[in-house]
Design a protein around this nucleic acid. Structure first.
Lengths: 221, 221
DNA sequence: TCAAAAGTGTTCGATCTACACCCATGG
DNA sequence: CCATGGGTGTAGATCGAACACTTTTGA
Protein backbone atom coordinates (compact mmCIF):
# COMPACT_ATOMS: atom_id res chain seq x y z
CA UNK A 1 0.00 0.00 0.00
CA UNK A 2 1.18 3.49 -0.77
CA UNK A 3 0.87 6.08 1.98
CA UNK A 4 0.48 9.79 1.36
CA UNK A 5 1.78 12.77 3.28
CA UNK A 6 1.56 16.52 2.87
CA UNK A 7 4.59 18.80 3.37
CA UNK A 8 4.68 22.58 3.56
CA UNK A 9 7.39 24.96 2.46
CA UNK A 10 6.63 28.06 4.53
CA UNK A 11 8.35 31.15 3.20
CA UNK A 12 8.98 34.28 5.23
CA UNK A 13 10.91 37.47 4.63
CA UNK A 14 13.32 38.90 7.20
CA UNK A 15 16.52 40.91 7.16
CA UNK A 16 16.24 41.31 3.41
CA UNK A 17 16.41 37.58 2.81
CA UNK A 18 13.98 34.84 1.93
CA UNK A 19 13.54 32.31 4.72
CA UNK A 20 12.01 28.87 5.09
CA UNK A 21 10.53 27.55 8.31
CA UNK A 22 12.01 24.18 9.26
CA UNK A 23 11.49 21.82 12.17
CA UNK A 24 13.87 19.48 13.89
CA UNK A 25 12.42 15.99 13.70
CA UNK A 26 11.81 14.46 17.10
CA UNK A 27 11.05 10.96 15.84
CA UNK A 28 12.49 8.43 13.48
CA UNK A 29 12.98 8.20 10.58
CA UNK A 30 15.59 10.92 10.30
CA UNK A 31 15.28 11.84 13.98
CA UNK A 32 17.28 14.98 14.73
CA UNK A 33 17.49 16.17 11.15
CA UNK A 34 15.84 19.36 9.97
CA UNK A 35 12.81 18.87 7.77
CA UNK A 36 9.69 20.45 6.36
CA UNK A 37 6.62 20.47 8.57
CA UNK A 38 4.09 17.95 7.36
CA UNK A 39 1.59 15.25 8.22
CA UNK A 40 0.18 12.06 6.89
CA UNK A 41 -3.00 12.42 4.90
CA UNK A 42 -6.09 10.96 6.49
CA UNK A 43 -9.15 9.67 4.73
CA UNK A 44 -11.46 12.46 5.74
CA UNK A 45 -9.42 15.51 4.78
CA UNK A 46 -8.75 17.02 1.39
CA UNK A 47 -5.10 17.46 0.53
CA UNK A 48 -5.46 21.22 0.51
CA UNK A 49 -7.20 21.04 3.88
CA UNK A 50 -4.43 18.90 5.22
CA UNK A 51 -1.87 21.51 4.17
CA UNK A 52 -3.98 24.20 5.86
CA UNK A 53 -4.05 22.16 9.06
CA UNK A 54 -0.29 21.71 9.04
CA UNK A 55 0.15 25.42 8.58
CA UNK A 56 -2.30 26.25 11.33
CA UNK A 57 -0.71 23.82 13.75
CA UNK A 58 2.76 25.24 13.30
CA UNK A 59 2.15 28.96 12.82
CA UNK A 60 -1.33 29.45 14.26
CA UNK A 61 -2.22 31.35 11.08
CA UNK A 62 -5.37 31.13 8.96
CA UNK A 63 -6.19 32.40 5.50
CA UNK A 64 -2.70 32.22 4.21
CA UNK A 65 -1.50 32.17 0.64
CA UNK A 66 -1.08 28.47 -0.02
CA UNK A 67 -0.48 26.75 -3.31
CA UNK A 68 0.37 23.22 -4.32
CA UNK A 69 3.80 22.61 -5.75
CA UNK A 70 3.56 19.02 -6.85
CA UNK A 71 3.66 15.43 -5.72
CA UNK A 72 6.99 13.72 -5.12
CA UNK A 73 6.91 10.00 -5.47
CA UNK A 74 10.19 8.28 -6.13
CA UNK A 75 10.11 4.75 -4.77
CA UNK A 76 13.03 5.22 -2.38
CA UNK A 77 12.30 8.73 -1.15
CA UNK A 78 11.24 7.55 2.29
CA UNK A 79 12.97 4.79 4.25
CA UNK A 80 11.21 1.60 5.23
CA UNK A 81 7.89 2.08 3.54
CA UNK A 82 6.43 3.67 0.44
CA UNK A 83 5.32 7.22 1.08
CA UNK A 84 4.57 9.79 -1.56
CA UNK A 85 4.23 13.39 -0.53
CA UNK A 86 2.24 16.27 -1.89
CA UNK A 87 4.01 19.53 -1.28
CA UNK A 88 2.60 23.02 -0.80
CA UNK A 89 4.24 26.37 -0.35
CA UNK A 90 2.92 29.20 1.78
CA UNK A 91 3.81 32.86 2.02
CA UNK A 92 3.44 34.43 5.44
CA UNK A 93 4.17 37.71 7.11
CA UNK A 94 6.80 36.75 9.61
CA UNK A 95 5.57 39.39 12.08
CA UNK A 96 2.19 37.70 12.45
CA UNK A 97 3.68 34.32 12.98
CA UNK A 98 3.72 32.82 16.45
CA UNK A 99 5.15 29.36 16.97
CA UNK A 100 2.64 27.32 18.88
CA UNK A 101 1.32 24.31 20.64
CA UNK A 102 1.65 21.10 18.64
CA UNK A 103 5.22 21.83 17.76
CA UNK A 104 6.72 23.26 20.94
CA UNK A 105 8.62 20.08 21.63
CA UNK A 106 10.60 20.53 18.45
CA UNK A 107 13.04 23.16 17.47
CA UNK A 108 11.68 25.56 14.92
CA UNK A 109 14.00 27.58 12.75
CA UNK A 110 13.85 30.11 9.96
CA UNK A 111 16.61 29.19 7.54
CA UNK A 112 18.02 31.14 4.63
CA UNK A 113 16.67 29.61 1.48
CA UNK A 114 20.16 29.39 -0.02
CA UNK A 115 21.96 28.30 3.12
CA UNK A 116 19.97 25.24 4.06
CA UNK A 117 21.20 22.70 6.58
CA UNK A 118 21.18 19.00 5.81
CA UNK A 119 17.58 17.97 5.36
CA UNK A 120 15.58 14.78 5.81
CA UNK A 121 14.30 12.72 2.88
CA UNK A 122 14.04 14.65 -0.41
CA UNK A 123 13.10 17.88 1.32
CA UNK A 124 16.01 19.75 -0.21
CA UNK A 125 14.60 19.04 -3.66
CA UNK A 126 11.12 20.02 -2.56
CA UNK A 127 12.34 23.39 -1.33
CA UNK A 128 14.18 23.94 -4.60
CA UNK A 129 11.01 23.21 -6.53
CA UNK A 130 9.07 25.53 -4.28
CA UNK A 131 11.53 28.35 -4.81
CA UNK A 132 11.52 27.79 -8.55
CA UNK A 133 7.75 27.86 -8.65
CA UNK A 134 7.67 30.97 -6.50
CA UNK A 135 10.13 32.71 -8.81
CA UNK A 136 7.85 32.13 -11.73
CA UNK A 137 4.56 32.85 -10.01
CA UNK A 138 5.78 36.10 -8.58
CA UNK A 139 6.34 37.50 -12.04
CA UNK A 140 2.77 37.29 -13.19
CA UNK A 141 0.75 37.42 -10.02
CA UNK A 142 1.17 39.97 -7.29
CA UNK A 143 1.78 37.55 -4.45
CA UNK A 144 4.93 39.14 -3.07
CA UNK A 145 2.74 41.27 -0.80
CA UNK A 146 1.91 38.23 1.28
CA UNK A 147 5.41 38.28 2.72
CA UNK A 148 5.07 41.82 4.07
CA UNK A 149 3.13 43.48 6.86
CA UNK A 150 -0.09 45.18 5.87
CA UNK A 151 1.67 48.50 5.40
CA UNK A 152 5.00 48.70 3.68
CA UNK A 153 7.25 50.99 1.70
CA UNK A 154 8.20 50.58 -1.92
CA UNK A 155 11.73 49.78 -0.87
CA UNK A 156 10.44 46.96 1.34
CA UNK A 157 8.56 45.57 -1.62
CA UNK A 158 11.52 45.82 -3.92
CA UNK A 159 13.65 43.96 -1.41
CA UNK A 160 11.09 41.16 -1.30
CA UNK A 161 11.28 40.74 -5.04
CA UNK A 162 15.04 40.90 -5.02
CA UNK A 163 15.20 38.25 -2.31
CA UNK A 164 12.84 35.94 -4.16
CA UNK A 165 14.35 36.37 -7.60
CA UNK A 166 17.92 36.67 -6.35
CA UNK A 167 18.65 39.51 -8.70
CA UNK A 168 19.00 43.25 -8.29
CA UNK A 169 16.24 45.44 -9.61
CA UNK A 170 16.50 49.01 -10.76
CA UNK A 171 14.77 51.32 -8.29
CA UNK A 172 13.43 53.75 -10.85
CA UNK A 173 11.97 51.12 -13.10
CA UNK A 174 10.54 49.06 -10.29
CA UNK A 175 8.60 52.05 -9.05
CA UNK A 176 7.40 53.03 -12.49
CA UNK A 177 6.05 49.54 -13.12
CA UNK A 178 4.29 49.39 -9.81
CA UNK A 179 2.70 52.72 -10.40
CA UNK A 180 1.33 51.63 -13.73
CA UNK A 181 -0.39 48.67 -12.14
CA UNK A 182 -2.39 50.76 -9.70
CA UNK A 183 -2.32 47.97 -7.14
CA UNK A 184 -1.09 50.09 -4.26
CA UNK A 185 -3.02 52.41 -1.99
CA UNK A 186 -1.24 55.29 -0.34
CA UNK A 187 -2.15 55.02 3.35
CA UNK A 188 -1.16 58.64 3.95
CA UNK A 189 1.26 57.42 6.59
CA UNK A 190 5.00 57.69 6.60
CA UNK A 191 7.88 55.95 8.28
CA UNK A 192 8.91 57.42 11.65
CA UNK A 193 12.24 57.86 13.36
CA UNK A 194 14.38 57.14 10.36
CA UNK A 195 17.51 59.14 9.70
CA UNK A 196 16.53 59.98 6.16
CA UNK A 197 13.51 61.09 4.18
CA UNK A 198 10.65 58.94 5.49
CA UNK A 199 9.10 56.58 2.99
CA UNK A 200 5.39 56.61 2.19
CA UNK A 201 3.60 53.51 3.42
CA UNK A 202 1.32 51.68 1.04
CA UNK A 203 -1.08 48.80 1.24
CA UNK A 204 -2.09 46.31 -1.39
CA UNK A 205 -5.38 47.05 -3.15
CA UNK A 206 -7.17 43.71 -2.97
CA UNK A 207 -10.31 44.95 -4.72
CA UNK A 208 -8.41 46.45 -7.61
CA UNK A 209 -6.52 43.20 -7.97
CA UNK A 210 -9.72 41.15 -8.21
CA UNK A 211 -11.12 43.59 -10.73
CA UNK A 212 -8.03 43.59 -12.89
CA UNK A 213 -7.91 39.82 -12.73
CA UNK A 214 -11.41 39.53 -14.15
CA UNK A 215 -10.46 41.79 -17.00
CA UNK A 216 -7.72 39.35 -17.87
CA UNK A 217 -4.93 41.61 -16.70
CA UNK A 218 -1.70 40.12 -15.67
CA UNK A 219 0.93 41.47 -13.37
CA UNK A 220 4.30 41.67 -15.01
CA UNK A 221 7.31 42.64 -13.04
CA UNK B 1 -6.77 4.28 3.76
CA UNK B 2 -6.20 6.66 0.90
CA UNK B 3 -5.59 5.18 -2.53
CA UNK B 4 -3.59 6.91 -5.25
CA UNK B 5 -4.04 6.92 -9.00
CA UNK B 6 -2.25 8.55 -11.91
CA UNK B 7 -4.15 10.16 -14.80
CA UNK B 8 -2.77 11.43 -18.10
CA UNK B 9 -3.95 14.31 -20.22
CA UNK B 10 -2.58 13.42 -23.64
CA UNK B 11 -2.53 16.36 -26.01
CA UNK B 12 -2.35 16.07 -29.78
CA UNK B 13 -2.64 18.54 -32.64
CA UNK B 14 -4.85 17.86 -35.65
CA UNK B 15 -6.87 19.96 -38.08
CA UNK B 16 -5.52 23.12 -36.55
CA UNK B 17 -6.97 22.32 -33.15
CA UNK B 18 -5.71 21.04 -29.85
CA UNK B 19 -7.04 17.60 -28.97
CA UNK B 20 -7.14 15.41 -25.88
CA UNK B 21 -7.15 11.62 -25.98
CA UNK B 22 -10.03 10.17 -23.96
CA UNK B 23 -11.22 6.66 -23.26
CA UNK B 24 -14.68 5.29 -22.71
CA UNK B 25 -14.72 3.60 -19.34
CA UNK B 26 -15.64 -0.08 -19.54
CA UNK B 27 -16.06 -0.60 -15.81
CA UNK B 28 -17.76 1.03 -12.89
CA UNK B 29 -17.56 3.58 -11.42
CA UNK B 30 -18.72 5.88 -14.20
CA UNK B 31 -18.99 2.99 -16.67
CA UNK B 32 -19.72 4.31 -20.15
CA UNK B 33 -18.50 7.84 -19.49
CA UNK B 34 -15.51 9.36 -21.18
CA UNK B 35 -12.46 9.80 -18.97
CA UNK B 36 -8.74 10.31 -18.87
CA UNK B 37 -6.57 7.22 -19.20
CA UNK B 38 -5.02 6.31 -15.88
CA UNK B 39 -4.10 3.60 -13.42
CA UNK B 40 -3.79 2.98 -9.75
CA UNK B 41 -0.35 3.50 -8.32
CA UNK B 42 1.41 0.40 -7.09
CA UNK B 43 4.03 0.18 -4.41
CA UNK B 44 6.95 -0.57 -6.70
CA UNK B 45 6.58 2.17 -9.29
CA UNK B 46 7.42 5.86 -9.10
CA UNK B 47 4.58 8.18 -9.95
CA UNK B 48 6.41 9.45 -13.02
CA UNK B 49 7.02 5.84 -14.06
CA UNK B 50 3.40 5.06 -13.58
CA UNK B 51 2.45 7.91 -15.90
CA UNK B 52 4.95 6.63 -18.46
CA UNK B 53 3.41 3.18 -18.28
CA UNK B 54 -0.08 4.52 -18.80
CA UNK B 55 1.12 6.46 -21.80
CA UNK B 56 2.94 3.46 -23.24
CA UNK B 57 -0.04 1.18 -22.76
CA UNK B 58 -2.42 3.49 -24.57
CA UNK B 59 -0.29 5.00 -27.32
CA UNK B 60 2.62 2.56 -27.61
CA UNK B 61 4.95 5.56 -27.44
CA UNK B 62 8.16 5.99 -25.46
CA UNK B 63 10.26 9.03 -24.65
CA UNK B 64 7.43 11.45 -24.73
CA UNK B 65 7.23 14.91 -23.23
CA UNK B 66 5.53 14.27 -19.91
CA UNK B 67 5.13 16.64 -17.02
CA UNK B 68 3.23 16.55 -13.77
CA UNK B 69 0.31 18.91 -13.41
CA UNK B 70 -0.63 18.42 -9.79
CA UNK B 71 -2.42 16.19 -7.35
CA UNK B 72 -6.18 16.38 -7.02
CA UNK B 73 -7.54 15.26 -3.71
CA UNK B 74 -10.95 16.52 -2.74
CA UNK B 75 -12.61 14.04 -0.42
CA UNK B 76 -15.59 13.39 -2.69
CA UNK B 77 -13.85 13.35 -6.05
CA UNK B 78 -14.22 9.59 -6.44
CA UNK B 79 -17.33 7.62 -5.50
CA UNK B 80 -17.30 4.92 -2.85
CA UNK B 81 -13.74 5.22 -1.64
CA UNK B 82 -11.07 7.82 -1.11
CA UNK B 83 -8.84 8.14 -4.14
CA UNK B 84 -6.51 11.01 -4.83
CA UNK B 85 -5.02 11.31 -8.27
CA UNK B 86 -1.78 12.72 -9.55
CA UNK B 87 -2.19 14.10 -13.03
CA UNK B 88 0.31 14.42 -15.85
CA UNK B 89 0.09 15.92 -19.28
CA UNK B 90 1.85 14.65 -22.37
CA UNK B 91 2.45 16.14 -25.80
CA UNK B 92 2.55 13.71 -28.67
CA UNK B 93 2.81 13.81 -32.41
CA UNK B 94 -0.54 12.43 -33.45
CA UNK B 95 0.97 10.83 -36.56
CA UNK B 96 3.19 8.53 -34.53
CA UNK B 97 0.42 7.45 -32.29
CA UNK B 98 -1.07 4.01 -32.72
CA UNK B 99 -3.82 2.88 -30.40
CA UNK B 100 -2.88 -0.48 -28.99
CA UNK B 101 -3.38 -3.61 -27.00
CA UNK B 102 -4.42 -2.94 -23.44
CA UNK B 103 -7.06 -0.50 -24.47
CA UNK B 104 -8.61 -2.06 -27.58
CA UNK B 105 -11.71 -3.03 -25.68
CA UNK B 106 -12.52 0.59 -25.01
CA UNK B 107 -13.40 3.36 -27.33
CA UNK B 108 -10.59 5.84 -27.78
CA UNK B 109 -11.33 9.31 -29.00
CA UNK B 110 -9.48 12.52 -29.74
CA UNK B 111 -11.69 15.33 -28.46
CA UNK B 112 -11.44 19.03 -29.03
CA UNK B 113 -10.07 20.58 -25.89
CA UNK B 114 -12.84 23.15 -25.85
CA UNK B 115 -15.66 20.84 -26.87
CA UNK B 116 -15.34 18.15 -24.27
CA UNK B 117 -18.08 15.59 -23.64
CA UNK B 118 -19.34 14.84 -20.16
CA UNK B 119 -16.46 13.39 -18.19
CA UNK B 120 -16.06 11.05 -15.25
CA UNK B 121 -15.01 12.24 -11.79
CA UNK B 122 -13.20 15.61 -11.77
CA UNK B 123 -11.51 14.95 -15.10
CA UNK B 124 -12.97 18.08 -16.64
CA UNK B 125 -11.16 20.16 -14.04
CA UNK B 126 -7.97 18.21 -14.54
CA UNK B 127 -8.01 18.90 -18.26
CA UNK B 128 -8.61 22.57 -17.60
CA UNK B 129 -5.62 22.66 -15.27
CA UNK B 130 -3.54 20.84 -17.84
CA UNK B 131 -4.46 23.32 -20.53
CA UNK B 132 -3.73 26.25 -18.26
CA UNK B 133 -0.35 24.83 -17.35
CA UNK B 134 0.43 24.15 -21.00
CA UNK B 135 -0.47 27.71 -21.93
CA UNK B 136 2.05 29.01 -19.47
CA UNK B 137 4.80 26.50 -20.12
CA UNK B 138 4.66 27.00 -23.84
CA UNK B 139 5.60 30.64 -23.45
CA UNK B 140 8.93 30.06 -21.86
CA UNK B 141 9.99 26.64 -23.04
CA UNK B 142 9.94 25.48 -26.62
CA UNK B 143 7.72 22.47 -26.11
CA UNK B 144 5.22 23.17 -28.88
CA UNK B 145 7.45 21.17 -31.24
CA UNK B 146 6.43 17.97 -29.49
CA UNK B 147 3.00 18.20 -31.07
CA UNK B 148 4.36 18.25 -34.63
CA UNK B 149 6.02 15.73 -36.94
CA UNK B 150 9.79 15.86 -37.15
CA UNK B 151 9.64 18.20 -40.12
CA UNK B 152 7.22 21.07 -40.23
CA UNK B 153 6.65 24.49 -41.73
CA UNK B 154 6.59 27.75 -39.83
CA UNK B 155 2.88 28.01 -40.50
CA UNK B 156 2.36 24.61 -38.88
CA UNK B 157 4.21 25.80 -35.83
CA UNK B 158 2.30 29.03 -35.64
CA UNK B 159 -0.96 27.10 -35.80
CA UNK B 160 0.16 24.93 -32.90
CA UNK B 161 0.76 27.99 -30.77
CA UNK B 162 -2.50 29.56 -31.81
CA UNK B 163 -4.38 26.38 -30.95
CA UNK B 164 -2.75 26.12 -27.53
CA UNK B 165 -3.03 29.75 -26.59
CA UNK B 166 -6.38 30.27 -28.31
CA UNK B 167 -5.29 33.59 -29.73
CA UNK B 168 -4.21 34.80 -33.15
CA UNK B 169 -0.56 35.57 -33.69
CA UNK B 170 0.94 37.92 -36.22
CA UNK B 171 2.73 36.00 -38.96
CA UNK B 172 5.56 38.47 -39.42
CA UNK B 173 6.34 38.81 -35.77
CA UNK B 174 6.06 35.13 -35.02
CA UNK B 175 8.65 34.40 -37.66
CA UNK B 176 10.98 37.15 -36.55
CA UNK B 177 10.95 35.82 -32.98
CA UNK B 178 11.60 32.28 -34.05
CA UNK B 179 14.48 33.36 -36.19
CA UNK B 180 16.09 35.18 -33.30
CA UNK B 181 16.03 32.06 -31.18
CA UNK B 182 17.98 29.97 -33.65
CA UNK B 183 16.16 26.84 -32.57
CA UNK B 184 15.19 25.71 -36.05
CA UNK B 185 17.23 23.88 -38.66
CA UNK B 186 16.37 24.31 -42.31
CA UNK B 187 16.11 20.76 -43.67
CA UNK B 188 16.51 22.00 -47.23
CA UNK B 189 13.22 20.36 -48.08
CA UNK B 190 10.01 21.98 -49.22
CA UNK B 191 6.36 21.13 -49.27
CA UNK B 192 5.18 19.32 -52.40
CA UNK B 193 1.99 19.45 -54.42
CA UNK B 194 0.58 22.56 -52.88
CA UNK B 195 -1.14 25.20 -54.97
CA UNK B 196 0.98 28.03 -53.66
CA UNK B 197 4.59 28.80 -52.89
CA UNK B 198 5.87 25.69 -51.09
CA UNK B 199 6.91 26.23 -47.49
CA UNK B 200 10.39 25.41 -46.22
CA UNK B 201 10.42 22.49 -43.80
CA UNK B 202 12.33 22.85 -40.55
CA UNK B 203 13.24 20.64 -37.67
CA UNK B 204 13.82 21.48 -34.05
CA UNK B 205 17.46 21.91 -33.01
CA UNK B 206 17.67 19.79 -29.87
CA UNK B 207 21.37 20.43 -29.31
CA UNK B 208 21.05 24.17 -29.62
CA UNK B 209 18.17 24.04 -27.17
CA UNK B 210 20.22 22.19 -24.56
CA UNK B 211 23.07 24.61 -25.04
CA UNK B 212 20.90 27.68 -24.73
CA UNK B 213 19.24 26.18 -21.68
CA UNK B 214 22.56 25.82 -19.90
CA UNK B 215 23.37 29.43 -20.64
CA UNK B 216 20.18 30.39 -18.86
CA UNK B 217 18.34 31.39 -22.01
CA UNK B 218 14.62 31.37 -22.00
CA UNK B 219 12.27 31.00 -24.88
CA UNK B 220 9.79 33.83 -25.03
CA UNK B 221 7.02 33.74 -27.54
C1' DT C 1 25.49 70.86 7.77
C1' DC C 2 26.06 66.14 6.66
C1' DA C 3 24.81 61.32 5.71
C1' DA C 4 21.40 58.31 4.23
C1' DA C 5 17.71 56.73 1.85
C1' DA C 6 13.27 58.41 -0.57
C1' DG C 7 11.58 59.72 -4.64
C1' DT C 8 11.54 61.88 -9.79
C1' DG C 9 12.83 63.38 -14.94
C1' DT C 10 14.74 62.17 -18.99
C1' DT C 11 17.48 60.00 -22.64
C1' DC C 12 18.61 56.23 -25.54
C1' DG C 13 18.18 51.91 -27.52
C1' DA C 14 15.75 47.56 -27.91
C1' DT C 15 11.63 45.43 -28.87
C1' DC C 16 6.93 44.99 -30.53
C1' DT C 17 3.19 45.99 -33.79
C1' DA C 18 1.06 46.71 -37.96
C1' DC C 19 0.88 47.08 -42.63
C1' DA C 20 2.36 46.58 -47.25
C1' DC C 21 4.51 44.18 -50.47
C1' DC C 22 6.87 40.41 -53.39
C1' DC C 23 7.38 35.24 -54.49
C1' DA C 24 6.54 30.43 -56.12
C1' DT C 25 3.35 27.03 -57.24
C1' DG C 26 -0.92 24.41 -59.29
C1' DG C 27 -4.77 24.82 -61.88
C1' DC D 1 -2.69 34.52 -65.61
C1' DC D 2 -5.01 34.09 -61.36
C1' DA D 3 -5.79 32.43 -56.62
C1' DT D 4 -3.42 30.94 -52.66
C1' DG D 5 -0.57 30.88 -49.01
C1' DG D 6 4.78 31.49 -48.20
C1' DG D 7 7.96 34.79 -47.00
C1' DT D 8 10.22 39.75 -46.14
C1' DG D 9 11.10 45.13 -45.29
C1' DT D 10 10.21 48.86 -42.63
C1' DA D 11 8.15 52.99 -39.99
C1' DG D 12 6.25 54.23 -35.75
C1' DA D 13 4.92 53.21 -31.13
C1' DT D 14 5.88 51.28 -26.88
C1' DC D 15 8.77 49.59 -23.32
C1' DG D 16 12.79 48.96 -20.37
C1' DA D 17 17.65 50.17 -18.73
C1' DA D 18 20.49 53.47 -17.01
C1' DC D 19 21.90 57.62 -14.97
C1' DA D 20 21.64 61.93 -12.69
C1' DC D 21 19.25 64.69 -9.92
C1' DT D 22 16.20 66.75 -5.91
C1' DT D 23 13.93 65.99 -1.27
C1' DT D 24 13.33 65.07 3.61
C1' DT D 25 14.62 63.42 7.71
C1' DG D 26 17.75 62.48 12.29
C1' DA D 27 21.98 63.23 14.26
Amino acid sequence: MVETSVDCVIFGFQHETLKVLLIKRKNDPSKGLMALPGDFLDEKTSIYGSAENTLKKITDLDNIFLEQIQAFGRVDRYPGKRVITISYYALINIENYSPTAGYTAEKLEWCDVDKLPELAFDHQRIIESAHKKLKRRVRYEPIGFNLLPEEFSLTNLQQVYEAILQIELNKRNFRTKLNQMKLLIDTGKKQKNVAHKPAILYKFDEKMYQQLKEEGFYFKL
